[in-house]
């Protein structure tokens, strides 16, 4: 299984984040809301490269880091 996000998954994720997007629209004037919604989605798609480049540790790495931090 590929750990990186495929573009289809990204689109699904945007759909699932729709309520969050709708909520954030309240931050602006009602005239600008449609613009903002579109811009947010565009911004997310534009930052695909950045999202794909996010690194996550595996279980052992996480555990090691945690244990060394504790000491």
């Amino acid at each position: 299984m590929d750990k990186k996000l495929s573009k289809e998954e990204l689109l699904n994720l945007i759909d699932s984040l729709n309520p969050k997007i709708k909520k954030s629209l309240l931050n602006t004037n009602y005239q600008d809301r449609n613009d903002l919604e579109q811009e947010i989605k565009l911004k997310i798609i534009e930052s695909y490269e950045k999202i794909a480049a996010i690194e996550a540790p595996n279980f052992e790495e996480f555990l090691t880091e945690f244990l060394t931090k504790q000491k």
Binding site: L25, N27, T28, D32, L36, I40, K43
Partner: peptide, 9 residues
């Protein structure tokens, strides 16, 4: 999403 919307406004 949050910071972009604030910034946009």
């Amino acid at each position: 999403i949050y910071f972009f919307s604030v910034d946009f406004d």
